[in-house]
Structures are given as structure tokens and as C-alpha cells.
Amino acid sequence: MPILELENLSKTYGGTTALKGLTLQVEPGSVYGLLGPNGSGKTTTLGIALGVLRASSGTVRWFGQEPTAANRRRIGALLETPNFFPYLSARQNLLLAADVKQADTRSVDQALDAVGLGTRQHDAFRGFSLGMKQRLALASTLLGSPEVLVLDEPTNGLDPQGIAEVRSLVQRLAAEGKTIILASHLLDEIEKVCTHVAVLQRGELRAAGPVSNILATADRVLLRPAPDTPAALVQQALAALPWVSDVRPETGGILSAAVAASHGPADVNRALFEQGIVLAGLEIRHRSLEAQFLELTR
């Protein structure tokens, strides 16, 4: 049973469409990245899923059920900005959040320690730096050890050490079997920690699936013809193969091509050799998620 199912979700603000017919599923135990440029609909999607924005149409199901306050208590979520009472201390804010979540107030100490705010717990929230506010919001998501974490831009305002700590925290929680939904425009962050990814652009889903699949479709084969083989001949032969597309000349006489997922570089080598074409070199160029993202959102 999926942890979260979004079915044909749409949201309009006045005349602006923020989300158009979004459908996706998050499976248990996955680290699901929601990727997209600013304004792509990531926060709107999570806001609807978490019950603070009303969808114009479509449905949300958590744990296979209609969304309710009770099933939201099984989720720890940080949406957009850390939201706390400025005149309360970090500890008082977390005690309040624990009451709302119906979590054991003893989990407050663990949460504060997990984000390194134990020594500042009695300071008022209003005096915190952006990074400390973000850490407190992360601490709040951990209260009551929820099954699912929803983190919207969790590394906002954090220094490089803080970013690394959040990454290892996400990996540790994922290793404990928790499902994590992570929205970010930082591709490196997503590529390092996520098992699945959905790419949004202007409120529309451009691609979704396991990170390896998304990246595999972006892999290209690089071919270096033997010195006595004209590149044009190789290009012609490749163009004749139905499972090869987008053949492009690269620098230094090299050619690159996209190969369908059903075939691999060995198939390319064999097909060319059967036509009497010998290659001096053949390799796969793995594209980064960044390159694939730019391709998808071009």
C-alpha cells in the first residue's frame, strides 16, 4: 500500500494555475525527491497533501485512507518556513508541538539533541539565526518518531556543515525504514539521498520514478570510430538502428547517441561490427541528475 497517493491534483490561485493534474505515488521506505525550479508547484503539492491548502480538484490519500488529522500525526513535516511562536523558547515551542502531535513530551530532549540545539533550548526563537530556526523545525518533525517525514527545502539557511548533517540525518532515518518526501531545488541534494524522484515544472509532472531509471534514460553512448573509418559512415549506420536516437557529433571526431533502455553499448558495438564498422572506443557517459533535470525542464 502506498504511503501517499496523489490523484489528478490541481490548484488554481485566481487566474494562475499552480498545479495541473498531478498524479503520483510514494511507496513505503522510499526517499522521494520532489524536484523543480522555484514556482514549479512543489510546496503547493505538499501543502495540499498536508491539509493546509485546498485542492481545486483531485484527491489525496495517506496510508490508503482519506486525509485526517489523525493520519497527519503519523507524519513529521516542515513546509516552506519554520513556524514557531517568536516569544517562546525553542523548548517551549517543541513542547507545544508535542502536545499538538500528541507525542510524548520526553521526545523533546532527543529531538533537540538530534539537531544540536540542546544548549540553546532556553533561548527565545526570535533570537535564532535562520539556520537555527531551520534546525528547530527539523527537530519538530522528529517529535514522536513519525513514520513519514515531509521536508520542504530542509537545508535552507544551513551552512555546509549543517547541510551535510541534514543529509546524514535523512540517510539515517531512511535506513531506519522511514519514508521521506524531500522537496528541493538543489539537485545534488536529491541525487545523493533519494531513491525516487518526481520532476515538476510549472505545476506539471515531467517525469517520475526511481532515480536510477530517470538517470538511465539520460545516459548516452560515446563512440570513437577507428582512424580509417569516416564518422559520417558511423553516423549513417547508427541512424539506421531503430533503438538508437539523437546521434550527435561531439568534439574530437567522437559521436554520441541515446540508446533505448532495452539495449546497451554491447548491442551498439555488435550492430556496427556486423556492418564492418570498427570502433576505437566505446563508453557510456552517465549524465548527472542536473543535466537530466535541465533536459526535462528545457
Partner: peptide
């Protein structure tokens, strides 16, 4: 109005309170 300004109504719903609560 503090709850709107600090966005704490929003956070409490996210944390598992219903609007009725």
C-alpha cells in the same frame, strides 16, 4: 491574528490538529 502572522495555525494543522480543534 498572531496565529496567522506566525503561521502557527498552519503548522498545527500540519502537525495533526484539525480545524475544529
Amino acid at each position: 491574528t498572531d496565529e496567522f502572522q506566525f503561521r502557527t495555525f498552519r503548522q498545527q494543522v500540519i502537525d495533526g490538529a484539525s480545524v475544529g480543534e
